[in-house]
């Protein structure tokens, strides 16, 4: 149990979104509801993990001078493949996320991990790193969208994108108490700022503990 807690804390502290401010564009734009966040999170997790694996596989034969364009080609191929698959088998996600699916290519997290980790480590380690970072990213945007959707509409729902079946739909806050502003860009920036400050506060407190001890 303790190691699970430790793992959870590490996801929080070495958080690419709230700690390193990577992948901002998608975090702010699509987190208006839970469905979008889950759809995007899983897409990014997939692309990140597979790209880490591929780039780690070819790391010894990739000439150093062109490594960035090579990584970009790999990532772009994966993103396009995911985009086509989503368009065909889960069109609801395509309708909701729109142009942000191809924009996963420029999600700094993926290129960042490729350069910082996958290009220097073995395949298994890179795969795990991709899963790790992808999970952290997914949990971060789920947190963002939970808050935003709850405050803006009072309800949470999830729809199976493969067949449009409703998984759950619960109204939690009555309509009169909702704050629609959280659906707008203003709410997006605010929620993000608060969560980022929260993570910074936790990190600061832990740093002080380490220094004090």
């Amino acid at each position: 149990m303790k190691s699970l807690l430790n793992y959870g804390m590490s996801l929080l502290k070495e958080n690419p979104v709230f700690g390193l401010y990577l992948g901002l564009c998608s975090s702010l734009a699509i987190t208006t509801n839970l469905n979008n966040a889950v759809g995007m999170g899983i897409s990014v997790l997939l692309v990140l993990t597979v790209s880490n694996i591929v780039i780690s596989l070819i790391r010894k034969i990739t000439p150093n001078e062109i490594r960035i364009p090579v990584y970009i080609v790999v990532i772009a191929t994966l993103v396009k493949a995911v985009e086509l698959l989503i368009k065909a088998y889960a069109p609801a996600i395509d309708a909701a996320l729109g142009v942000f699916i191809p924009l996963i290519v420029v999600n700094c997290i993926i290129l960042g991990r490729a350069e910082a980790f996958a290009s220097k480590n073995g395949v298994v380690a890179s795969a795990l790193d991709g899963l790790n970072m992808g999970l952290s990213y997914t949990l971060s945007i789920i947190a963002l969208s939970l808050i935003r959707q709850l405050l803006a509409t009072g309800a949470l729902n999830m729809i199976n994108p493969f067949n449009d079946a409703v998984i759950f739909d619960i109204a939690i806050i009555p309509a009169e108490f909702t704050i629609p502003m959280f659906s707008s860009p203003i709410g997006a920036f605010l929620t993000f700022a608060l969560l980022a400050a929260g993570v910074a506060a936790i990190n600061n407190r832990d740093q002080k503990k380490v220094k004090g001890a």
Binding site: T77, K80, L84, L85, A88, Y89
Partner: peptide
């Protein structure tokens, strides 16, 4: 080549 393969598979559905 990879994309051509995926595209072939998905474009009729799309």
């Amino acid at each position: 080549a990879t994309l051509a393969f995926v595209n072939n598979m998905t474009s009729p559905i799309i």
